[in-house]
Nucleic acid binder design. Structure first.
Lengths: 342, 342
DNA sequence: ATTGGCACTCGGTGTCCGAGAGTGCTACCC
DNA sequence: GGGTAGCACTCTCGGACACCGAGTGCCAAT
């Protein structure tokens, strides 16, 4: 049926445009794909696709280029995700396997993803709020300064210095440390409030001010924006195959330096099921109108529909290899989930 | 004397070229600077400067542009460092003052420097080796996993998981923790070996394997390359005023993503007195032949000739405002030193 | 519904030319 | 000897112009 062929044509246009980076014309299309019809027929189909807003021509005498809407349709209905090749899987394995700590895991993951996709990779640290606590440590630093160290199940460590009105009593600190750990270890940080409230009752009045301060710091750390950490790699890939660099590159680099922006992008994407694909304006960030973001949550139970603990993403041009990028993002996310579950 | 005027001409060329980004000709020079001679005379001087390898002309009918050597002479003998303006000083003050922890300090410093210089800023975390220890924490994670957390005087925290052959005994862990802290607190990490060696004698034979393992991890952490951490900001500034982006930008972005490369640059620069300026090939990195690196050490006693604890740097085009950049780098380094000394 | 044919549009490339900028050289002056 | 004026020369840059080729839309024929 004709309608089917039109979609074939759209698919062909997207694929050719992605690989050649040139607007694709009707003749080139019939030559490179076994469509079984003449260029004239393709032209008719193209006119229809253009009418539907799926493709445009940059100028009269040029071939066609997909629109945001065209890519969207391609991703939703036309793309077939090819699984990664065995060498690629093996590369992931060997690259990730001897990471020594969480920083190392995240660092390797982000570099790996950048290399697999030849695009910019973004990896978010496991959210403090959504992971369980492993340990709370109180380190007296001076008479009136207490260092509060929080360690999560995945080995993420956050610290904050607390300034106190009264001099510290070491015995009290030791006792609080014990109480806090008994109450909090193994809990999700989000559920911590309740657990900590219980502790307050067990404590003698003279220590309760200190306890409240410590709890305050812990909650601050969870609530603050520093809660979320994001790392980026592969910015050099932005330059490759980019023509009008000055206009299109600068806003992207700016966005990448703003944690706040990155976090919003990732949070928005978390609304989508499975691997999220945000195309051009769908990113809802004006610096990224010519870019797409492919992202996925990760975390121990993500595969079985459990909640994600954070996200990873690949950012590339509108004209990116969506199937390949989706496959890479998914593979790295899964691997990351496995590691965290160890 | 004529020789003096030639240097004036060089200075004028550098200044004009930096501000206009255009090769500067003899006429423009006499118009913009009160040199008191005619263009023809300037041309003779220029010929001499070119002969000396201090300037070149991109092509016959163009003005002159400084060479690496020209910039070097300018920086060494001709530039007068202007102190920062009061508003600028105030900006530093307000921007840095309410940082909550070391990560925050470093993050703010790097952004600040990027903004002051309109270039790429690089800040290195205080070196573990060269700072004193505040605390060592041992956290039993499971029967056979022990998390070792190292906290330095500046509040830098590093952790590493230790995998053990034998099950942990909590009492032993507590004892080791105490011994380690008594022995190590307040020491420079570089001097730690000796201090830790003493501990080994005080410990009963059955714990000594564990102790050795823990000491091993600590030393590993200090020796490993993860010892050094570097953050970067302002990459978007690379694009501004850059013409042939494709060739000149990509290698720079790559260098910036390679911690190893950045560290080498900073280490090399540490050989220089005070604020180091590395121009073009002097960086000894082929991706940076068209860039210069202005850097300075920082740390509590740096001003009084004490050893630096780490470095900050600003990376920009060959054609940068050296006096301004030097002033900014120095100011931020000093402020950083003050904060760490608090 | 598909196709072949055809006129039309328009960007890209190459060439040419003139304007302008800047130089080096030479003759001249103090 | 150092500085200056004049001048011929070189080279880039930008605009004008023509041409080519790619690609289209449309129409009549199958």
């Amino acid at each position: 049926m004709a309608e089917d062929r039109r979609l074939d044509v759209l698919r062909a246009i997207v694929e050719d445009y992605v690989s050649t980076k040139e607007p694709v014309g009707s003749r080139a299309l019939v030559e490179r794909h076994a469509l079984g019809v003449s260029p004239a027929t393709i032209r008719n189909d193209m006119a229809a696709l253009e009418e539907a807003g799926l493709i445009v021509q940059p100028h009269t005498s040029a071939g066609r280029v997909p629109t945001d809407k065209g890519y969207r349709l391609f991703v939703d209905r036309l793309a077939t995700i090819k699984p990664l090749s065995t060498p690629e899987r093996r590369a992931i394995e060997t690259f990730m396997q001897d990471a020594v700590d969480l920083d190392d895991v995240v660092d390797r993951a982000v570099r790996l993803l950048a290399q697999l996709t030849h695009q910019v990779a973004v990896v978010q640290y496991p959210s403090l709020r959504r992971t369980a606590l492993r340990h709370v440590e109180l380190v007296p630093v001076s008479e009136r300064h207490l260092l509060v160290v929080i360690i999560t199940e995945h080995g993420r460590v956050e610290q904050r210095t607390l300034e106190l009105a009264d001099p510290l009593d070491l015995a009290t600190v030791a006792r609080l440390r014990m109480l806090l750990n008994v109450a909090a270890t193994g809990r999700r940080l989000a559920d911590l409030d309740a657990a900590l409230a219980g502790v307050a009752d067990e404590v003698e009045p003279e220590s309760s001010a200190l306890l409240r301060a410590v709890i305050g710091v812990i909650e601050d750390t969870l609530a603050g924006e520093s809660e979320e950490r994001v790392v980026v790699a592969g910015t050099a890939n932005l330059v490759r195959g980019n023509t009008d660099v000055a206009r299109s590159l600068s806003p992207v680099l700016e966005a990448l330096e703003e944690q706040v922006v990155l976090l919003r992008l990732l949070t928005d994407a978390a609304e989508d099921e499975g691997v999220s694909v945000r195309i051009g304006r769908e990113t809802r960030h004006e610096g990224l109108v010519d870019a797409s973001l492919v992202s996925s949550g990760y975390g121990a139970d993500t595969d079985t529909g459990g909640p994600a603990v954070a996200r990873i993403a690949s950012l590339g041009p509108l004209r990116m290899d969506y199937p390949g990028t989706i496959a890479s993002v998914r593979a790295v996310a899964r691997y990351l989930s496995r590691i965290l579950a160890n």
